[in-house]
Amino acid sequence: MNRVIHLLRLTLLLFVFLALGQPLYAQDASTVTADQVNEVARELWCPLCSGVRLDGCELKACDQMKDEIAIKLAAGDDTESIKSYFVTQYGPQVLGEPPRSGFNLLAWILPVAVLLGGGLFVLTRGRSMMQDIRPAPVASSERPVPDDDYARRLDEELARHD
């Protein structure tokens, strides 16, 4: 009994995968290869998942998007117009990056601004730290002559310290 159910499930799955593997509207787009589709899909992102590129997404929704790309490619559209079609349909989330306008410009500007600001801060701080120490190198005559005992001890400790 179990085996029967198992076989049934197996055939069902085969069917599902078959359906996934084949484009649904192959008649107009049959001349377009999967590689050509993926060329475009690589620049789009699954609107349902986060951070999954369209060419690597296995959702049925994404497969349909790829079919749509094939249709549009067959109709002679180029990558840019396909991309903009999906943006108007689904919104900017199909692009992997925020659009460079309006509030979303901040996504691009702020990291650069913070980095430059931080660099400037480090530079000025570093310089002021350096000015603190700049006074001329120590003239040896200024130093009190160390008593030999301590110097010897220091040498001993140094010899042990490595």
């Binding site: 190198p137 120590v138 040896s140 130093r143 160390p146 220091l154």
Partner: peptide, 16 residues
């Protein structure tokens, strides 16, 4: 030489 001298000076003063 210069740094070594300076550091040794520090070390000596610390020892003391």
């Amino acid at each position: 030489a210069q740094y070594n001298q300076r550091l040794r000076g520090q070390a000596l003063s610390l020892l003391k």
